[in-house]
């Protein structure tokens, strides 16, 4: 299975990656070879099978509804790229 250049562009948009013109041909080639590998899956007979969950994990553990976290805003915001008055700053979002 080969992948079209246009498809790569769409995937890049979905995953918020800037793929430049120079590398797009290279990426297209490499992705096609990986897809050729994973296409081997299509030969497998999985008719009778469910999508798997794990073999020995039976169910999700549940946590009691008790507040245990304290305010650590200063520690977290100290490592943030940009903050202002306790808010994380990002380029303006346009609705």
């Amino acid at each position: 299975m080969t992948i079209e250049r246009k498809e790569i562009e769409k995937l890049a948009t979905l995953s918020r990656l800037a793929i430049d013109e120079k590398t797009i041909t290279d990426v297209t080639g490499r992705l096609s070879s990986v897809l050729a590998l994973v296409d081997q899956l299509q030969n497998a007979d999985t008719e009778s099978l469910q999508e798997v969950s794990r073999p020995f994990h039976i169910s999700q553990r549940l946590r009691n509804d008790e507040v245990k976290e304290t305010d650590q805003r200063d520690a977290f915001q100290a490592i943030a790229p940009q903050t202002h008055n306790g808010l994380f700053s990002v380029p303006k979002m346009i609705e």
Partner: peptide, 28 residues
């Protein structure tokens, strides 16, 4: 970035069953 693109592809509309769904069955 290559793996993010591959993963995005395998989960995207129209491909999920053939790739991700299938791979999970193969896992079994």
């Amino acid at each position: 970035q290559r793996r993010i693109l591959i993963g995005t592809y395998c989960l995207s509309a129209g491909y999920y069953d053939a790739y991700y769904g299938k791979a999970q069955k193969v896992r079994q």
